[in-house]
Nucleic acid binder design. Sequence first.
DNA 1: ATGAGTGCAAAGGCTTTGCATTAGG
DNA 2: CCTAATGCAAAGCCTTTGCACTCAT
Lengths: 151, 151
Amino acid sequence: MRSSDIDVHGTADEQLRRAGQRYTANRRSLVDALVGSSGPVTVIELLESIDGMAQSSAYRNLAVLEEAGVVHRVVTDDDTARYELAEHLTGHHHHLVCARCGAVIDIDVPNVIEDELRSLSAKVARAHGFRIDHHRLDLVGTCGNCTAPTD
Amino acid sequence: MRSSDIDVHGTADEQLRRAGQRYTANRRSLVDALVGSSGPVTVIELLESIDGMAQSSAYRNLAVLEEAGVVHRVVTDDDTARYELAEHLTGHHHHLVCARCGAVIDIDVPNVIEDELRSLSAKVARAHGFRIDHHRLDLVGTCGNCTAPTD
DNA sequence: ATGAGTGCAAAGGCTTTGCATTAGG
DNA sequence: CCTAATGCAAAGCCTTTGCACTCAT
């Protein structure tokens, strides 16, 4: 399942309506920007690629979109939040993170591991009285650019 | 391997010396506070349990301790950093996170999964030109308190 | 004595909020 | 019309930094 295979805007619209929200031009712009990215992006990056949107609108609308389940807020190592489309729009995936420059790349993980993680979740939920919603798996290292000779 | 089984202060001292740093009273207090916790704690929590240490000293010393490899900075969902002892002092583990209140609890993961993750890392490293240092696995959900009837 | 460590207060950077204006149903 | 959404500016919150003082070697 890839963003290109689904009617992202239609789905977003529907999810927002269901949440009692409108799918405004600004919100559409944000979703468009996210569709075009290969991994979670920062608010600043979004603003750069959108032009004319107030910073406060970006933050407010991303919050609305997250609340409605259209986008997902991601925090890695640096303390700048990043956003990506929700998993039902992108497919389940995990992240490869550069600890140096903060770059984040989407990666897929073998089903064997996903299965193991699901059963682990069930076990841990029981043991600790949690309800587990999802798991998060990041591989953290240094990307090609940051290892480059220029260092 | 548990904190109680190792000479944490001796190790910390040695690591700091190796990094050209001193193991001062403040740094020792921070390590002590971390030894007593069952998971990553926020700087504010550390300050509450220490008494008399300036906030700036906490941040500065935690940075030094992290640089020396004594502690590890952890970021989860809220944007407050948390700190824990480095893995060679606590053993390799992962985190159970409450998305509601932010609580973080250490958990162990079966070796099968750890093995799978290691080989996944190697594969992904090759595919993306990364050098992978470690992985991070969080199970995210809602803890018992936050699911309680009082809601 | 000399540089590292400390505390206090001020500054920074990301994010949120207040308020008046604009736009959508 | 009437509420939601927007932009601008101000405020908040966590974290970092500047500076003078203190401590350890």
